[in-house]
């Protein structure tokens, strides 16, 4: 358990730095920004309980907000993700391997993990961008931002997960 906390904390610090130093400055086609830091939330073990997940998600989002000068926005989005995550986990976790508490491609299988990460990302991006835009005045732009951001984030999550778990 202590080991898990260490690994997740170190993972979080690394992803956090990546996010604020690199990914926040990427604007693919002027609109696409990956939000890899939510991988930490996806990695949270299911055993710590829903309330703890919600709280940790909030703290992660809030810390990111402090550094990206967008108070409340990322926190609100990650909060939604933190609430939804346990339910998604229960839906996609493999039946034969009910003891595993951590989400990864190895445990879930690529297909299940892809859906799990995909839905999480889309939810997070939708909330975040709707808060940021604040209106439905340019639905096409908003939708394309949500789509592109989700796609970039999802690809990076899958890549990171492969690297992270193969290195162990």
């Amino acid at each position: 358990m202590t080991r898990t906390i260490y690994t997740i904390t170190s993972l979080f610090i690394i992803l956090f730095l990546f996010q604020i130093l690199i990914f926040n400055h990427i604007h693919l086609f002027g609109i696409g920004t990956p939000f890899l830091y939510i991988y930490c939330i996806l990695c949270l073990p299911n055993t710590i309980g829903k309330s703890a997940q919600v709280l940790i998600s909030f703290v992660i989002g809030f810390l990111l907000d402090l550094f990206s000068n967008s108070p409340g926005m990322n926190a609100s989005a990650t909060l939604c993700l933190g609430l939804l995550n346990p339910y998604l986990f229960r839906i996609f976790m493999p039946i034969y391997d009910s003891e595993s508490s951590e989400a990864s491609i190895q445990h879930f299988g690529f297909r299940s993990y892809f859906y799990y990460a995909g839905i999480s990302t889309i939810v997070h991006q939708t909330v975040l961008i709707l808060i940021e835009t604040g209106s439905f005045d340019h639905p096409l732009l908003t939708l394309s931002r949500i789509g592109l951001n989700s796609l970039l984030t999802l690809i990076l999550i899958l890549v990171t997960d492969s690297i992270y778990h193969s290195s162990k």
């Binding site: 919600v54 409340g72 609100s76 609430l83």
Partner: peptide, 12 residues
């Protein structure tokens, strides 16, 4: 979730 979300909205 509701409490923290309220806090978020206040912050926003």
């Amino acid at each position: 979730f509701i409490l923290l979300q309220t806090l978020c909205i206040v912050l926003i």
